[in-house]
């Protein structure tokens, strides 16, 4: 058993879950309203692929959701990282921004849903802004902590060798903080994905998050599970992509 490669263990665990799933659904132990069987789920998924959902093709729903997630994540992570670098570098900037960042971070997005609609309307702006606000604090705090954790000797050595403040920032602080910034980015991506359904409550009629919500109203569990599957799988893909970038950019981290 000790020699089992980890991918075999992963496959085994998936097979066991699938077997339990088939076992409890095929025997009629639970109704398909509570848990659709694998075949029901597949039929539901194929229906979505062929006919779309509520007048829109499935690809449009997936595409709109991905667009929102990527736009909210990129803008939120970029702005958050810049702000966090500044906060880590300058105690004054930190004193200015920290209360707002700390306040925003634990706030549930649904709390300001109606405010976003009043301020920004029901179009893409309010949806992307909600995702932006979800990504921003996480990225800012990761970048700030990354800067704070730069060993002071490195900075002193660079200064002693005659580097300017900008050179220290550019060639010492940023590379040292980069691993934490990228870990923060992956965290932010996860949070943005988690906020997607809340964002798509705003005047929906497209998006996977909205589809799950709408199908759940009438207990169309097959569509709900299909939607959850698609969010889960694209979520893993995005995370893997970020991990790949992390490994290439900061290949030295952790060594």
């Amino acid at each position: 058993m000790r020699t089992l490669p980890s991918w075999v263990i992963t496959l085994l665990s998936m097979a066991v879950v699938l077997a339990i799933w088939i076992g409890i659904t095929s025997g009629g132990l639970v109704r398909d309203l509570f848990l659709p069987g694998p075949l029901d789920l597949w039929d539901g998924f194929m229906e979505l692929v062929q006919d779309g959902y509520k007048g829109r093709p499935l690809l449009e729903h997936v595409g709109m959701s991905l667009f929102r997630v990527i736009a909210g994540f990129l803008t939120g992570a970029a702005a958050g990282t810049l702000l966090g670098l500044g906060m880590g570098y300058s105690p004054r900037i930190n004193a200015l921004a920290a209360p707002f960042i700390e306040f925003l971070r634990p706030l549930p997005q649904l709390a300001y849903l109606v405010l976003l609609i009043i301020w920004l309307g029901i179009g893409e702006t309010s949806k992307v802004t909600m995702l932006f606000l979800a990504a921003l604090p996480v990225s800012a705090i990761a970048a700030r902590d990354g800067v704070a954790n730069v060993p002071p000797e490195r900075v002193s050595v660079a200064l002693a060798l005659g580097a300017s403040r900008w050179q220290v920032f550019r060639y010492v602080i940023i590379p040292s903080a980069l691993p934490e910034i990228l870990v923060g980015a992956r965290l932010a991506a996860g949070i943005v994905y988690g906020t997607l359904i809340a964002a798509e409550i705003i005047a929906g009629s497209n998006g996977i998050g909205w589809m799950i919500l709408d199908a759940g109203r009438f207990l169309r569990s097959d569509y709900v599970f299909a939607g959850i599957g698609m969010i889960g799988i694209t979520g893993i893909l995005i995370d893997r992509l970020l991990l790949l970038i992390e490994r290439r950019v900061v290949h030295w981290a952790g060594r």
Binding site: L113, V114, I117, I122, I202, A203
Partner: peptide, 13 residues
């Protein structure tokens, strides 16, 4: 264009 909105959101929009 039929939009899915809660009653409170309709008033806001």
């Amino acid at each position: 264009t039929v939009l899915d909105m809660k009653a409170a959101a309709i008033v806001a929009a």
